[in-house]
């Protein structure tokens, strides 16, 4: 194996997305944020092709839509909805926290240590809960035939 660059000896690459050490829930929210982001990007590229190349003639549009109304594609579309609900709400959390809001006041590092993210954990939980709620609303419409 090649020796890692001395400045990057703790570099984990993609493996770090799966396991970076004994981290808290935010670490896994980060992994899920990346995976959902890449998933939505992949869907978006296919979606852009379908909605532009098959849009000029009624026949080709209806043929394409018939394929996409297959239950497996519906399931795939629902996964995109889930990914969007998660990615947008977690993104909102990231924006709020990265701009420094809701982090609490700095405190001296005395055991048991408190990290600032933990103070806003109930907000993380509320966002995950809201994402689940949105997912259920969309699930209802998918099931009744949306």
């Amino acid at each position: 194996m090649r020796e890692p660059h001395p400045k990057r000896k703790n570099y984990l690459g993609i493996m770090g997305w799966i396991w970076g050490g004994n981290y808290r829930i935010e670490r896994y929210l980060y992994t899920l944020h990346r995976v959902t982001g890449l998933g939505i990007l992949l869907f978006f590229l296919v979606h852009l092709c379908v909605t532009t190349f098959f849009r000029m003639q009624q026949q080709s549009w209806e043929a394409a839509m018939e394929i996409l109304h297959n239950p497996w594609f519906k399931l795939g579309e629902y996964l995109v909805v889930l990914a969007f609900a998660y990615h947008s709400l977690n993104g909102l959390r990231l924006i709020i926290q990265e701009l420094g809001f809701g982090m609490g006041k700095p405190a001296p590092p005395i055991y048991p240590y408190r990290d600032s993210l933990r103070k806003s954990r109930r907000w993380s939980m509320a966002l995950v809960g809201t994402a689940a709620l949105i997912a259920l609303v969309f699930l209802y419409d998918f099931l009744v035939g949306g």
Binding site: V81, D141, V144
Partner: peptide
Amino acid sequence: HMVWMHLDNI
């Protein structure tokens, strides 16, 4: 876009 395309029943 998502609400318009997927929540048509609601």
